[in-house]
């Protein structure tokens, strides 16, 4: 059956339900949130309709600048760590037999689907004094007594890399699994070692994929809202944590909404950048 343009209004019928649901429950809530970001805070309830820029003006404070700077720095670090580990790993994985790949993909999906609550709890256990990894170090004689490794910046970083690593591998997987194997074969025939073929052929060929993945993982890491709370101190809180905190505990919806709008703008411009990078790769 060929695809045809819809002729009668009845042809549009299947679109009605999805369109209605997406507009009422996604476009409208989103618009309300943008509207609320211009509202005034009402200590008695949620907010009062108004049109003020106060909520955005608060971005200019030193505190907000610090949180923003920290969030961006943390997300960049997480993305860089993930790419460095995931890229060679995914490349090697695509060279394994299908069965091996399938087992790994099931495992990666299982970890990726885990709740942030569970990831946070699991790492807080692994970093704890009584049940943590340092007990192992004591047992093999590396340390004299077990210590708690949290709350620290290292704990937050480890937890977030753990959360983002399966995501990174799964984003890289399609590009690497479709990579033309004759390219590396040619390099090998000409006498390059596997290591050299990887760094001089595979990495440059997928430069744009790497950049696009880096941005995707960066946006993903920006969304982490529980791990900094469970594994870090308040000074390790990110923009996402702050939004939750303002909305729920400080009952300041307008300020939370303004920060959320800001976060949308950052994420959207970055996602737009990935699309641009992707387009250039397709054109080349």
């Amino acid at each position: 059956m060929r695809r045809e343009p819809p002729r009668s209004p009845a042809d549009y019928a299947p679109l009605a339900f999805p369109a209605l649901m997406l507009i009422v429950f996604f476009v409208v809530p989103f618009s309300i949130m943008i509207a609320v970001s211009f509202f005034k805070r009402d200590p008695a309830g949620f907010y009062k309709p108004d049109f003020v820029f106060d909520n955005y003006a608060r971005f200019l404070s030193a505190f907000f600048g610090e949180v923003l700077g920290f969030s961006l720095m943390l997300a960049v670090t997480v993305a860089a760590c993930c790419i460095v580990v995931a890229f060679p790993f995914t490349y090697l994985l695509t060279k394994r037999p299908r069965r091996v790949q399938t087992v790994w993909l099931v495992g990666l999906l299982s970890v990726l689907s885990l709740s942030e609550v569970i990831i946070g709890f699991a790492w807080s256990t692994l970093f704890s004094r009584t049940a943590g990894i340092t007990n192992l170090f004591v047992a093999v004689g590396l340390m004299s007594e077990p210590v708690a490794l949290l709350p620290t910046f290292g704990a937050v970083l480890t937890g977030m890399v753990y959360q983002a690593l399966p995501y990174t591998i799964l984003v890289l997987y399609p590009a690497l699994v479709r990579l033309d194997p004759t390219m590396t074969e040619a390099a090998r025939t000409l006498g390059a070692s596997p290591m050299r073929a990887f760094f001089n052929v595979v990495v440059p060929a997928l430069r744009n994929t790497i950049v696009a993945t880096l941005i995707m993982v960066f946006v993903f890491a920006l969304g982490s809202y529980l791990l900094p709370q469970i594994l870090g101190r308040p000074r390790h809180w990110t923009l996402s944590v702050l939004i939750t905190d303002q909305a729920i505990y400080q009952s300041n919806m307008p300020f939370a909404a303004a920060m959320a709008v800001f976060l949308v703008l950052i994420s959207l411009s970055l996602v737009g950048l990935t699309l641009l990078v992707g387009r250039r790769e397709n054109a080349a």
Binding site: P29, M33, G223, Y225, I243, L263
Partner: peptide, 8 residues
């Protein structure tokens, strides 16, 4: 980021 959708 999921926080945004949640807040919406």
């Amino acid at each position: 980021p999921p926080v945004i959708t949640a807040l919406g």
